[in-house]
Amino acid sequence: MSLNSLWQYANPKKFIQTTEKVLPLFSVLAVVCLVVGLVWGFFFTPDDYRQGSTVKIIYLHVPSALMAINVWLMMLVTSLIWIVRRHHVSALAARAAAPIGAVMTVIALATGAIWGQPMWGTWWAWDPRLTSFLILFLFYLGYIALWEAIENDDTAADLTSILCLVGSVFALLSRYAVNFWNQGLHQGASLSLDKEENVADVFYFPLLVCIAGFVLLFVALVLLRTRTEIRARRMRALLARERMG
């Protein structure tokens, strides 16, 4: 399949037709992965010798934190596609993804707080990672609020994509600034390509399954929400046409 043919899915009609078929598949896979990963992680892994059973919240915390960042990246890419190629589905996909990303950020923050309480003795600390996630959440809020505030869909798509680009730069800057501003409590990355730094294998494999589950869940949700956005958009267009007579 050439790259050219990839763009055919940018046609709303084609998108609706295609996702009609693949959406159930993604939904089922997401549920299977999540159930397997979480059950495996929660009930069939040993307790950590230092952290006890609290470590098991990692199966929610790490995937949601990963998604929180990657959803923003996906929005950045779709925003760029909208700016360059002006495919409406791309802009609507970014719009559809934002609330999911915001929820992922909240899950990551909440599970982090629940984990942090027994470990660090505090629900919240102004640790660089925690703070950056809070700032990321604010960016999500601003982005969603801007979409909601503008009536004209094309104007909203243009403005939010530029906000997404500018916001990405400032989010990166904030990440660096926050690191500079305070040294953290947070442990290093739980996953990395460098095997030595990884969590032990018993925790690693169920974690991978959970991450796959979160990714699939996100894909399913974003497809579903994009379909809704397309239909809502089409409904508004039909109504407007009717008003015009």
Binding site: P12, R234, A237, L238, R241
Partner: peptide, 13 residues
Amino acid sequence: RAMDPDDFDEAFL
């Protein structure tokens, strides 16, 4: 002129 409602693609109408 309004377009055929079944023929929606990029512009949704």
